[in-house]
Amino acid sequence: MTGTAETDSVIEPRRAWLSLLAKAPAASLARLWAEAGPAPAHEVLRRPEIGAVMARGRAGGAGAPFNLGEITVTRAAVRLETGEEGHGYVQGRDKAKALTAALIDAVMQTGDAPRLRAAVLAPLAAEMAAAAEARARKAAATKVEFFTMVRGESE
């Protein structure tokens, strides 16, 4: 990284894959990453560390923030031999998942990004979207259809 201001076109895709990795099912991520081939040469900058993030809500959904409770999060950081730094912040207490996320974040900054996107990120995104869609479809089936009861004599 050069230290110059990053443009949105750089930040937005990175934000998207980091968010995807953070919430991804650990088993699927591990499987897809293993199938994507050996990890590139790297050093670990920050060994996986388990911690907590305080989640917040807003009074009335829109007002003053308040502390809702913490969430377990694991983070790790790596640097590839070629210099790219990767950061993994993932939900839960899974050190392997945090390290994998950091490695993927680093590789996504290299020329190997399109291959990794196709092999790991796209299938993960599809799996998560399908799960969300299935939930939404089940919710839709429980939507109440009201009908009006006509009472009394008509005409």
Partner: peptide
Amino acid sequence: YRTTLPRFGAARPVDTARMRPIR
């Protein structure tokens, strides 16, 4: 257990209007 965890930070308030509700 939670007292043993370092706190990485505080999140932005959740936006419940963006939720796709199951109920």
